[in-house]
Write a protein that binds this DNA or RNA. Structure first.
Length: 425
RNA sequence: GGAGGCGUCGCCUAGUCCGGUCUAUGGCGCCGCACUGCUAAUGCGGUUUGGGUCUUAUACAUCCAUCGAGGGUUCAAAUCCCUCCGCCUCCGCCA
């Protein structure tokens, strides 16, 4: 959630941000009014409660006739206190409900617009000219099937569409990617974490995934728990309701978990292969930092993502995601998009968001800076989303004979193999 | 899944049976001040978090809430009742 003080002092800034996101601006005024009602009924409650307490203190010592008088007065007050309390709660809940609907304040440098209005910041690597090499590239599924690495048909048979089996070298490739990613993160000072895949509503809501993204989240009715779409959720909620000493920051975690996404509303989109699936493994970086360090940390996360993709030898571009395409929690987001030869375009492989204190406020994660207690900032960034990375590796590193070149960083985890080769059927 | 125990403002802890004197006790730690060649020791004061009021002020003062969370009973709840959450012990089942 955003800072209510900012909203009171500079509502126009919040309105502008809301507009840039393409969200309802009227929400801001409804929230201001609910907040004011909460405040005024709170003042009333405090007064009544104070009076009630002072009467209550007199009762045990009072003479019988005084006592009767006091009790009569107290009984009246009881109802008034209850009413004021209810009014305060009601306005408070209304304000909170509205506040939770409000997205984070968009960073002023973010390009305004929808999905297509991103800015390209950097381009890395060389896109191969397969024509000049004398063959037409195959897509990742055709390659993966020939390598005995991917089995979509049985994935669908057993679990439905958008499910898959990774088999043989496919399974090994996943493990190699995870190991290499965790190794890179650990070397950079991250604490490796294996996190729960099921979380309570509080954690899900606190990270901002029950708003606009709610339809994309699996919910287990029977236990009222959610399957996480990213380990960002358990990592952000890890320090929920805690106050962290300033000298402990930054805290950096590299979470490894399965990720579950319903992919609602993506029918007909990326239906072939493992580019868009309901379940995949991901190594995610997550940082808790002091607010003044958030922007620098955001760039650091981006650097680690670039280091990873450069190590895999993938051509990619870095984009500054447009305001309308930010998640609710992000004030700014950089995506690294790898070139996918058979699609002829760059597609998202990693994504890093600066959430400022948006998640920290919702989850009540604060820092102690001298005498002051204040919300800190949280940031997240993908290091390796396995399935998409496999897609990019297979397609970019394929050879004319259908074999696939293995980037050096992965070789130690693949028994030194330099090439994945098709298997006889 | 069954039985029992527990949860107090950093940590430990008193208080809960029997509601008001709890404005939550004491110790440890921490912060400030004083004293002291240094250190140590000692003394005094302070030390949960959130929301208000006052204010130029994140200072001072003050009010309200907060004893795992929520609800109830009552003039009044750490204390009584209900629900939930978490932890511990034992039994059952199990990778």
């Amino acid at each position: 959630m955003i800072d209510l003080r900012l909203l009171r002092e500079d509502p126009d800034r919040v309105r502008a941000s809301q507009r840039a996101r393409g969200e309802d601006v009227a929400l801001v005024d409804a929230l201001l009014s609910a907040d004011e009602r909460r405040r005024s009924s709170g003042v009333r409650f405090d007064e009544l409660r104070s009076e009630q307490k002072s009467i209550g203190k007199l009762i045990p010592k009072a003479s019988p006739e005084e006592k009767a008088e006091l009790l009569k007065k107290a009984e009246q007050l009881k109802a008034e206190v209850k009413a004021a309390d209810a009014a305060q709660d009601e306005a408070g809940e209304e304000a909170r409900g509205l506040l939770l609907k409000l997205g984070n304040i968009v960073h002023p440098d973010v390009p305004v617009g929808g999905e297509e209005d991103f800015t390209v910041l950097e381009t890395h690597g060389t896109i191969r000219d397969f024509g000049a090499e004398g063959f037409t590239p195959k897509d990742h599924l055709e390659l993966g099937e020939a390598l005995g690495a991917i089995d979509m048909e049985r994935g669908a048979k057993v679990s439905g569409s958008r499910f898959y089996y990774l088999t043989g070298v496919g399974a090994l490739l996943e493990l190699a990617l995870v190991n290499a990613a965790v190794a890179q993160a650990t070397a950079a000072g991250f604490t490796p974490m294996i996190t729960p895949a099921l979380v309570r509503p509080q954690a899900m809501e606190g990270t901002g995934f029950l708003g606009q993204a709610a339809a994309d989240v699996y919910h287990l009715e029977q236990d009222d728990t959610y399957l996480v779409g990213t380990s960002e959720v358990p990592l952000a909620a890890y320090h929920m309701d805690e106050i962290i000493d300033a000298d402990k920051l930054p805290l950096r975690y590299a979470g490894y978990s399965s990720c579950f996404r319903r992919e609602a509303g993506t029918y007909g989109k990326d239906t072939r292969g493992i580019f868009r699936v309901h379940q995949f493994e991901k190594v995610e970086m997550f940082s808790y930092v002091a607010p003044e360090d958030a922007e620098a940390e955001h760039l650091r996360l981006l650097e680690w993502e670039k280091e990873w993709l450069l190590g895999l030898g993938l051509p990619f571009q870095v984009i500054d995601v447009a305001s309308g395409d930010l998640g609710a929690s992000a004030s700014r987001k950089y995506d690294c998009e790898a070139w996918i030869p058979t699609q002829g375009k760059y597609r998202e492989l990693t994504s890093t968001s600066n959430c400022d204190s948006f998640q920290a406020r919702r989850l009540s994660v604060r820092m102690r800076d001298g005498k002051q207690v204040k919300p800190l900032s949280t940031l997240n960034g993908t290091l390796c989303a396995v399935t998409r990375t496999i897609v990019a590796i297979l397609e970019n590193h394929q050879q004319a004979d259908g074999s696939v070149w293995v980037p050096e960083v992965l070789r130690p985890y693949l028994g030194g193999r330099e090439l994945l080769e098709p298997i006889a059927k």
